[in-house]
Design a protein around this nucleic acid. Structure first.
Lengths: 206, 206
DNA sequence: CTTCGACTATTTTACCTAACAAGTCGAAAA
DNA sequence: TTTTCGACTTGTTAGGTAAAATAGTCGAAG
């Protein structure tokens, strides 16, 4: 067994942890449970991850990488900025639905998660702001979008999308959310980005 | 003393209750405290209001009347729909800042308040939706605004404004909020309504 | 009609303790 | 050397209990 790659064992632990954290939340999951899930004793977990917090941070780190990578891939494709924004909004909802732990960071359903791991949320925001800002800048550069201050607009869009998410999940924490709730969020988000794009898009000549 | 108008005593109790509820929240305030504030014994409060809940509902009722009345007054004035919307957004922030108990209903800072008094929040939403819808309809009627579905757009605007509020006050409950927080909310809200109006406003001929 | 002292019933709080959970260590196994 | 884990320590949490607090009541007084 000593010829196993350590990274493989880490991945197994991360997957098990990710699953439990997503379902029960950080504070309700015990290291004993995760250890049992992967067929180890608890002290063995600490061989790979020095603290429960660091395990959770690793889980978040992985989810954030996937989130960012998927969005970046999408944004790399040649398309008008408006189309990218629309796709971004929908993809964002889908990704947050899938990456439950990452999603919970921004929704503040768990108070202790938000205060201890607030830096993680801040980092996610900064990354999203960068991506969104780039899209708006590109749209302005091609003349597609008419923007006075793309950075401010990107920030606003993020705040508004965040607000919609927070209000939506204020009474039910993922994954205990009904499909209708996601449908409502998508409807609002799509409608919103349509309207915002209408206000940002340079008018073609009459 | 028995010639005093009962309504005057009720108003005194309501004012004292409103002040305490706003500062400490529904559950932390005792009927003994309110009684002492108005110079009565606790059983005397129950002479005017049969339960603590009904006292709180009366407080909310009064705040909601003021909220609705002020906004209605403003909307009655002759002005373009866009200007009304802008003024509405700013006035909304100011009123919620002043009417702390009403504000808390929508922000869900107190879990028990939200579940017991959720019907009050729903009623407020319905009233706002009516007002906003009327503004959008009028703007569409004059040709100022270009809208496919004014009711849907009114609902979206309310959801988005609510989301901005919820995310803003997720970590500090009014009245324990700093001025900078209000300034940020106003900035986002103004910027948002500007952009939305840009998307809704019928373009003048070039 | 209005007020309130005394009271009841329920809820909340404070306190205590056992159980639980994060983390550690030395030793064994691989 | 790396990986694993039984036994352990330390701090936190959960549950139970009694006391205190609070919503609400009632009869009597003004």
């Amino acid at each position: 067994m000593q010829q196993d790659q350590p990274q493989a064992k880490e991945q197994v632990i991360l997957a098990a942890a990710r699953k439990r954290f997503a379902y029960y939340g950080f504070s309700k999951v015990t290291m004993d449970e995760i250890a049992s899930d992967v067929g180890l004793a608890k002290p063995s977990l600490y061989y790979y991850f020095p603290t429960k917090e660091k395990l959770f941070r690793a889980v978040i780190g992985h989810e954030q990488e996937k989130f960012t990578r998927d969005i970046e891939l999408m944004l790399k494709k040649e398309a008008p900025a408006g189309q990218k924004l629309r796709e971004y909004v929908d993809m964002r909802i889908r990704l947050f639905r899938e990456l439950v732990n990452l999603s919970a960071l921004g929704v503040q359903s768990w108070a202790e998660v938000s205060s201890i791991f607030g830096d993680l949320f801040t980092r996610l925001e900064e990354q999203e702001l960068k991506l969104l800002h780039a899209v708006l800048l590109a749209g302005k550069g091609t003349g597609e979008l008419e923007l006075v201050n793309p950075a401010q607009t990107a920030k606003l869009i993020l705040h508004v999308l965040h607000g919609l998410r927070v209000r939506t999940f204020s009474t039910a924490r993922p994954p205990h959310v009904e499909n209708g709730t996601y449908a409502d969020l998508k409807k609002d988000s799509d409608h919103l980005i349509d309207l915002l794009l209408k206000g940002m898009t340079r008018q073609s000549s009459h």
